[in-house]
Design a protein around this nucleic acid. Structure first.
Length: 103
DNA sequence: TGAATGACAAATT
DNA sequence: TAATTTGCCATTC
């Protein structure tokens, strides 16, 4: 099996391991997946994620501690994070120094 | 098979 | 210091 096919599977596994109330960056997930420079692909995997997936994709944000999504998706992610105790600004900003996933 | 895309990140100006 | 540009890499057209 090509490792390229496992990339998405690794991303799923890693994101599924993020504890509630905490968040991880795309770069971190990519690094844990074995491709430190594939942060963009992490977002690509989540983008094609089926709506019925139970994966906590909302716990993944960018390096600036902001939500990269826009529109309704942004509001949905912000609401889901706040429901877990994560403080999210109206613009989608999160204090990484407090909520970043420490593994 | 090849070119284009993108839920990022780092370097440069 | 902030804003803009370039690089990366797996997936999609």
């Amino acid at each position: 099996m090509n490792e390229t096919l496992n990339f998405a599977a690794r991303v799923w596994q890693i994101i599924a391991a993020i504890p509630p109330g905490q968040v991880a960056t795309y770069g971190d997930v990519a690094r844990l997946a074995g491709s430190p420079r594939a942060a963009r692909q992490v977002g690509g995997v989540l983008r094609r994620l089926p709506p019925d997936s139970t994966l906590p994709w909302f716990r993944v944000i960018n390096r600036h501690g902001c939500i990269s999504l826009q529109g309704d998706d942004l509001l949905r992610q912000r609401d889901a994070l706040e429901a877990e105790g994560v403080v999210v600004s109206e613009t989608g900003e999160i204090d990484l120094s407090r909520f970043r996933w420490c593994y």
